[in-house]
Amino acid sequence: MALLDYFLRKKGKQVTTASKAKERLQIIVAHERNSRNKQPDYLPELTADILKVLRKYIKVSDESFSINLDKKDGDLNVLELNIELHDEHGTH
């Protein structure tokens, strides 16, 4: 079915591998630039330390914890911690 293949291939051309590559790159590059610009070197270590302290007292899963350092205008930096607390039985 070479003839059929020929037409099918023509149709399939709309999503090329190049456009897929571009899309993937745009996402990953934007993501990596973000973490490069925002995150200071100490952030991963700080995150680990905070989690260690928290876990001495409460149950915190990796998913229910987020940390973010935001640059606001001027010299103001905001460190934002988000901790979702679960009750003792592990339900929400």
Partner: peptide, 17 residues
């Protein structure tokens, strides 16, 4: 290969970088 959609074009790379 760019014309065939198999390679990133100059514009694609310029857009990203």
């Amino acid at each position: 290969r760019v014309a065939e959609g198999e390679m990133l074009s100059v514009e694609d790379v310029e857009d990203i970088l």
